[in-house]
Design a protein around this nucleic acid. Structure first.
Lengths: 243, 243
DNA sequence: CGCTGAATTGACAATTCTCAATAGACGTGG
DNA sequence: CCACGTCTATTGAGAATTGTCAATTCAGCG
């Protein structure tokens, strides 16, 4: 079994890959046959679009990226936000299912997909890691489904704020404030709302004293419990009884 | 490498597992250490609920099952329908994230989760199959996200009809009609609508001549292209331009 | 300092939800 | 075989939320 970098083997890679690739300066080999290149992109640039062939695995070192799909009527559905430490791994063969756009300046590590897969197919541990990552994405997807199914703007935005707040990569010093790297439009396209509605809800939260909205897209959560109540911690997978 | 049953190795298992387990009568060993039991359940019964420990992998031989989660306000979000040939595989450790309820009489094959995982962890091919299944579920989840993001009842119902129509397991003889094994309420809880809205949309489709709604929850699609247009085959992952 | 894109706020329209009543299907039992 | 009861589906009317369109304020940047 080949030697795998910690960033691939560790269970918590999705949120923290510091220390592992931090050591790789100038494209040194991480494991036999699996190298990564550095790439930097500016805000607004696309890593790839839906029609592109899938050729790479991306690891985000810093910044924020969104994965989206264009829907009928010009509507855009963002299916995931990716932050520092997150992987973007093509799921199947063929063209990309999504487009990936940098929402801020982004620092990337890029692995050739073919090599990545070759390394995985020969190694059950690596394969298991990939599976683990896919499962984590699946859980995220189900969370988003729950949010979209709510049909409740306040609950959606509250869930979004709590989710983002849980990502260490986005915190700024001191008062526990979070930088929202995305536009109101991006939040709206993620939650299935309009940017006006997102704005209204945030203003409403601010007025109720649940959050502080500061300069530079900074948000600080003041009443976490109240937000959680809005989301409905009553959310439960338990049956409410046979039908 | 152990000998694996075709139902696990084949790529198209999610929709068709006939012929593989058809041969296993009375719990014979399928591969070393991996046996399955038969179980039958009636409509309305739960395979498991969200608080249960995850102990089994299920393969549906016949019938229909839904996976759901209860949301705040008593709202129920169905995250997936499972039909004949589909697996229900616990993703992570801990309790179930969802409840699973039989929507019709169901014939099941039940594998002990521990044995299933043991077989997988030692076998890169098996692991790869599991990954493949998870990825397929992920794609389904993203499809549902796209539907829920639409915020358009007609598009949602049209997408649902076309999706269900694509599942061979649900077709009845002759005129290409499909049996919808689920209630209007189930469809609504899947699409983030109310059963009244689902009913209204179906009636509207019927009046427009897009579908026939027959006896016994039978639906026949007459104007596939029109329904597809409603969904918006314009759906695309291609960027509409840099921002 | 002014320009440009983003965010906020307002007024109104549209869709869906809620509540309610009716009609239909299915199974049971007389 | 029909009547009844129950569950499901349909239909209707009104309420509520969000979307749409438009105008204004704000922030960042040259």
């Amino acid at each position: 079994m080949t030697k795998l970098p910690a960033c691939i083997l560790n269970s918590d890679v999705l949120t923290a890959c510091e220390g592992c690739l931090a050591r790789d300066r100038s494209n040194e080999h991480l494991i036999a046959g699996l190298t990564c290149a550095k790439r930097n992109m500016e805000s607004g640039q696309h890593l790839f679009v839906g029609s592109d062939e899938q050729l790479h695995v991306y690891l985000i070192r810093s910044g924020a990226v969104c994965l989206y799909k264009m829907l009928r009527g010009g509507r855009r559905q963002i299916v995931a936000f990716k932050f520092a430490g997150d992987f973007i791994i093509p799921a199947a063969n063929g063209p990309h299912r999504f487009s990936a756009q940098a929402m801020t300046a982004v620092e990337l590590r890029v692995f050739p997909l073919a090599l990545f897969r070759a390394a995985a197919s020969g190694d059950a541990r690596f394969m298991a890691r990939l599976h683990e990552i896919a499962v984590a994405e699946l859980c995220k997807a189900y969370d988003l489904i729950s949010i979209l199914g709510h049909h409740d703007a306040e609950a959606s935005v509250a869930a979004f704020l709590l989710d983002v707040d849980g990502r260490a990569a986005l915190h700024v010093g001191g008062a526990g404030a979070v930088i929202l790297p995305m536009l109101r439009t991006d939040i709206a396209d993620y939650l299935g709302l309009t940017h006006e509605t997102v704005s209204r809800v945030l203003t409403s939260f601010k007025r109720k004293g649940l959050i502080d909205v500061g300069r530079g897209r900074t948000v600080r959560i003041k009443e976490r419990a109240t937000l959680a109540a809005l989301v409905g911690k009553a959310e439960s997978a338990v049956s409410s009884g046979a039908r």
